[in-house]
Structures are given as structure tokens and as C-alpha cells.
């Protein structure tokens, strides 16, 4: 009996007193209803994409629809370059995540393990750049990619936004914990700095790299503003820009827009369910806010 009581105290963080089952049931019901509210828009998106054309509003009272149709998905792939957008999104997202990781790990390593003049100033400068709103940069960045001839190119879409101060900070903090002795041992064994970086430093920072890879991918996949400025041609766009184009083109065809939104979202949610712990802990640790 005493044992049971102490177990309960451990599980209870702040609610003391008699453990009324009623309060637990009420609390549970409250969270079920609340959670339904949060999940419902996603359900509505999927269901609306499956309704036959023109039935979205007429059948809105049917929470569980009686008639389903894949027509909107067919239109998406046959009349719009949706397949191309998926490919673009995957290629650009991978390119972005790898570029951003490369920048973070190399600079993070330099800032963590090498002593050079102005290092602290540089580090603070990079951190301060985190607070610059992207809208201050868009005009200058736009003029820059025009001058560099990078409009409509993957390079233009990826490189100007690939420098992530928060990511660099995260990597630097992680690399500070790598033992200097290990690096020196490698140097004594005759490894050059590149070998040390790729075969000693990177493998040791693997957890941080994996977390950042996921967060960077999510960031680019969901990003709208910069790709919207870089890409005007439909065949180069990633999904987020493509969906925006669908809205403008088919004002009232919600089924089509919802089908496009569903296909851009559901794979991410399924991936997330496998990587839940890493995503949520990574987010809590970096505090990026996720745009």
C-alpha cells in the first residue's frame, strides 16, 4: 500500500490531494476534444481533396463523406506539373539541407576548435544576424542573384538562405564537447586537417548532424518566400510555390488545392511519426521556432 502511494507521488508533479477518478476522466475528455480540434483541419484537408468536384461545400455537413473521388489528384498530375514539383522539392530540399549542414559544420568546427583573431567578434556577429528579419534582406538578395545570374536556378534558391546562424550555434556547442586529445592524437598519427574533420569530427557530431538535417529539410520543404521570389517558371518550382500557383489559377477549385496540400503534407507527417523524438527534442534544443 505504501509502495503504491509513493509510486503515485512520483508520477504526480503538482496535483496533490485525493486522486479523484472523476477529475482524470474530465481532463482526459477535455484533451480528447481539444486534440480533435487540432487534428480536424488536417482531416478536413484530406477529406475535402477526396470529394467529387463541386461537392466540397454542398456536402460539408457530411463529416464522413458518402462519395469519394480521385479526380482532383488526376488533374494535379495530368494537367499541372505536380509530379515535377515533387521532384523539385525533394532535390532542392536535399541540396539545401546538405549545403546548410556543410556550412554549419565547417564554420562551427572552426569557431569551436581553432583560435584566431576576431573569433569571438565573428561569432557574435553571426549570432546577431539571427535577428535580422528576412524581409530586410529580400530586396538586396534579389538584386544579388540577378547580378550573379542565379534567377530560376537551384543555386539561387539554396545558397542565399543556407547560412543558418542557429544551426551554426547548435553545431558549435556540440563540437565544444569533442575531446581535444582525440584531435591531437589524430594529428600525431599524421592525419591532415581535412582527414581529421571528415573522419574524426563529423562522426563524433553525428547526433547533432542528424537532428539538423531533419530540421533543415523541414525548413526548406515548407519554405515559401524565397523560392517564390527566385522561381517564376512553373517547371522549376518546389511544392510550396506550386500550391500558391494552384490557388491563383483555380480560385474556386478547392478540391485541387486540397489535393495538392494533402500530398505535400501527409508524407511529412508519416516521416515525423518515425522521427518524432528527434524532431521534437531538436526543436526544443535549437529554439528556431520553425517557420
Amino acid at each position: 500500500m505504501a509502495e503504491q502511494a509513493s509510486e503515485l507521488t512520483l508520477r504526480t508533479r503538482w496535483l496533490p490531494g485525493p486522486r479523484l477518478n472523476l477529475s482524470r476522466i474530465v481532463l482526459f475528455a477535455f484533451f480528447v476534444i481539444l486534440t480533435l480540434g487540432f487534428v480536424f483541419p488536417l482531416y478536413w484537408m484530406v477529406i475535402s481533396s477526396l470529394r467529387p468536384e463541386g461537392r466540397i461545400f454542398v456536402d460539408a455537413f457530411e463529416i464522413i463523406p458518402s462519395a469519394l473521388s480521385l479526380d482532383s489528384y488526376r488533374t494535379l498530375f495530368e494537367e499541372e506539373p505536380y509530379g515535377q514539383w515533387i521532384v523539385n522539392s525533394i532535390v532542392q530540399t536535399a541540396g539545401f539541407a546538405i549545403t546548410a549542414l556543410f556550412l554549419c559544420t565547417t564554420s562551427g568546427y572552426a569557431l569551436a576548435k581553432f583560435k584566431f583573431r576576431g573569433r569571438n567578434l565573428l561569432f557574435i556577429l553571426i549570432l546577431v544576424s539571427q535577428m535580422i528579419p528576412f524581409h530586410l534582406l529580400i530586396v538586396s538578395l534579389f538584386l544579388m542573384i540577378i547580378q550573379l545570374g542565379l534567377v530560376e536556378s537551384y543555386f539561387g534558391a539554396i545558397i542565399p538562405i543556407a547560412a543558418s546562424p542557429i544551426g551554426l550555434f547548435f553545431v558549435r556547442q556540440y563540437m565544444l564537447s569533442i575531446d581535444d586529445e582525440m584531435l591531437n592524437a589524430a594529428r600525431v598519427d599524421g592525419a591532415n586537417e581535412y582527414q581529421i574533420f571528415f573522419s574524426v569530427v563529423l562522426p563524433n557530431a553525428r547526433p547533432a548532424i542528424a537532428t539538423l538535417f531533419i530540421l533543415f529539410s523541414l525548413e526548406y520543404w515548407n519554405n515559401l518566400l524565397w523560392p517564390l521570389i527566385v522561381f517564376r517558371e512553373a517547371e522549376n518550382m518546389p511544392l510550396a510555390v506550386g500550391i500558391t500557383r494552384l490557388i491563383n489559377q483555380y480560385q474556386q477549385s478547392y478540391d485541387l488545392v486540397m489535393a495538392g496540400s494533402t500530398l505535400a503534407t501527409i508524407p511529412i507527417i508519416i516521416l515525423f511519426l518515425f522521427l518524432r523524438r528527434q524532431v521534437m527534442e531538436g526543436l526544443a534544443a535549437t529554439g528556431t521556432g520553425m517557420k
Binding site: L27, M45, I243, M290
Partner: peptide, 28 residues
């Protein structure tokens, strides 16, 4: 508080909207 059964499930489900693109949030 330890009083909510299945709190991880609730946490995860309430978190799901954060995974959607803001574009999708807008369209929905």
C-alpha cells in the same frame, strides 16, 4: 502533471499542425 493518460499521444497530435507548411495552413 501526470494526471493525463496518454499525454505523449496528445502532445504529438497537437504538434502535428506545426509540421504543415504555412502555405498548407493557409489553404486549409
Amino acid at each position: 502533471s501526470g494526471r493525463v493518460v496518454q499525454s505523449t499521444v496528445f502532445r504529438t497530435l497537437i504538434f502535428l499542425p506545426a509540421l504543415t507548411s504555412l502555405v498548407v495552413a493557409g489553404t486549409v
